[in-house]
Computed example of a mutant assay.
Amino acid sequence: MLKLQNISKQFDHKIVLENINLEINTGEIVSLLGPSGSGKTTLLNIILGLTKMDQGKIIFNDVDLSHVPMKNRGFNIVFQDYALFPHLNAYENIVYGLRNKKGLVTEKELHDYIDFLELWPHLEKKIGELSGGQKQRVALARTLVTKPKILLLDEPLSALDGVIKESIKERIKSIAKEFKLTTIIVTHDPEEALTMSDKILIINQGTISQFGTPHEIINQPSNDFVKEFILKQLQIKRQNIYNLFGEKYA
């Protein structure tokens, strides 16, 4: 279990996060949802260890990681732009993080990850030769082979559309289920959060507006901001809402 206790952060005396308290169970997919500037990416970076919090605690499996460096936390992230090395082919990108971690994965495990993400036909391709969906799968494979304790995803679908986006959605859900991997996703898109997540944390102006399941968010919005943000401001696709929650909310 990941526990965040009273997490707060300021930049240039401006409050970005204030008293964030959260518990995430093993294997859950949790989306951090909110408008631009709400603090969701800062919270993701604090969990990763990339950004230092001003106060609070990060507890993972009863161990206090609050002051543990990023490289020692055992978490890993797929950035919005994938951060792949263009001069390396897909396979070289996938195994790059293993260069100083001999024995972390067996050859069979490596092949299983490649097989799971259907990357065999693309291993020899340079990054510039890959589609957006293929780049995303390479980035996921590169992260998974390091066996992260928590998988962090920063706007994983923002550069994708149509069938490719739906395919990556399903793969992310399959990864969490297959590997029992706690997954935290930053998104500004309510549709993505509702269709991908076990739970959703809605952040507004650095504070928690609501934390709950998709059904709870839709059926019992905690305040007007949640209702407006989910159902009106970002204009969620009616058919997806209908499929998830029925005609009343479509």
Rank of each mutant, 00 (worst) to 15 (best):
L2G: 05
K3H: 09
F11Q: 00
F11E: 00
I15F: 07
L17K: 07
N19I: 06
I20N: 01
I20L: 07
N25L: 01
G27L: 02
E28M: 09
S31L: 10
S31C: 12
L32D: 05
L32Q: 03
S36W: 09
G37D: 14
S38M: 08
L44I: 07
N45M: 15
L48G: 08
L50H: 11
K52L: 11
M53I: 12
K57L: 10
F60P: 01
F60S: 04
N61V: 01
V63H: 10
P69S: 15
M70H: 09
K71Q: 11
V78F: 06
Q80A: 00
Y82E: 08
A83N: 10
F85A: 00
L88D: 00
E92T: 03
I94L: 06
V95E: 13
V95W: 14
Y96L: 14
G97C: 13
L110K: 13
H111C: 03
H111R: 13
H111A: 08
Y113A: 01
D115L: 12
E118F: 07
E118Y: 07
W120N: 08
P121E: 12
E124A: 11
K126G: 05
G132C: 06
G133K: 12
Q134Y: 02
Q136T: 09
R137V: 11
V138R: 09
A139H: 02
R142Y: 06
T143D: 05
T143I: 12
L144F: 04
V145M: 15
P148R: 15
I150D: 04
L152Q: 05
D154T: 00
P156E: 06
P156C: 01
L157E: 02
L157A: 01
D161V: 07
I164G: 03
I172D: 09
K173N: 10
S174T: 12
F179S: 03
F179C: 01
T183Q: 04
T187K: 02
P190I: 06
P190F: 03
E191F: 01
L194G: 14
M196H: 06
K199R: 14
K199Y: 05
I200V: 13
L201A: 01
G206W: 10
S209T: 00
G212R: 11
I218K: 12
N223H: 01
N223E: 01
V226Y: 03
K227C: 03
K227H: 14
E228F: 12
I230W: 04
I230R: 05
L231N: 14
Q235L: 04
Q239A: 11
Y242W: 11
N243V: 05
L244P: 13
G246M: 13
G246K: 14
A250Q: 06
